[in-house]
Amino acid sequence: MAQVTLSRITKRYPGSETAAVDDVSLTIPKGSFTTLLGPSGCGKSSTLRIVAGLSRPDYGVLQMDGRDITHLSAARRNIGMVFQSLALFPHMTVAENVAFGLEMRGIGRSERETKVARALDIVELGHLAARHPHQLSGGQQQRVALARALVVEPSILILDEPFSALDRKLRETMQIELYRITRDLGITAMFVTHDQEEALTLSDSIVVMNQGRIEQQGTPREIYGAPRTRFTAEFMGLSNFLPARCNNRALSFEGLTTEMPAAFEAEGNCTVALRPEGLSLSSTRPEGAALKGHLAEAIYQGASTSYTLDLPSGRRITARTTDCGLLPGQEAWIAWTPEALHAFAA
């Protein structure tokens, strides 16, 4: 296992105005599971391909345990990679697929067989070793790809949206399995996804990327609980953005002034976001900070009801809460739990 460091990595594709990867510096500590998260085209896959050695940066340095590997061929980086398409070799059996990397490293037959058997045991596929990939289910193919990447005892395991083709249930099973295996083996892993839930489930550390740059890096708890930019907040499922001002930790928006939540820092013009799930409605004014609104719409959704409210400023707010019996046309007071209020600069 190794620590991987990216220093000021920049990559521009020919014919493109903007850089796909723009001055990215990042450390993936030994044994940590780090996820690059962002929408398609944000540079996460380009970054991952640079770490894997499948693409060369125009600028910057890539190090593995302090050794410069910027120009080292992918074949010599000792990485294990799981591709989005899985890229299982269709003409080889499961065992041959898994053995391929060992063979390329010149490992003898008997040692190869032992290692392949062990790797297949880890992913619980020992009984399917003689099958060809097309004879396996999607989840089984996934495990073969994982075993093939793990068997070479890689310095870093790289996963490029490996679960995007699976249905939701299978994806959750595979996520749990990947979590178990990487933590059991203490593997350094770099994972790429556009699915925030997946990133929250799997990661020790999440790197949110946008337009080739790192937007924010932190633990899942930090990223979810205290997004520092509007982009991260939106990406983590926040909505109800309201313009605000912050003056010496006094936060005012929509005619209301309240204390700035401890997790956030901003001064001057800033933005407030209210997590829809953390809001509650009532017909009478609650204690503490609250906004008054006009209930425009109530859509019953079973476990919760989605309310749309018009604020006096003309802005709209959505609240998802248990049914409170209010009807469209009525006035309502909106209150929130402390965690539901977020604030960030601009």
């Binding site: 894997a52 499948l54 074949a75 010599r76 980086r77 391929f100 990397g101 390329m104 093939r148």
Partner: peptide, 9 residues
């Protein structure tokens, strides 16, 4: 690419 990352020339 998979073969390449697994060490193939």
């Amino acid at each position: 690419e998979a073969a390449h990352t697994l060490g193939a020339s």
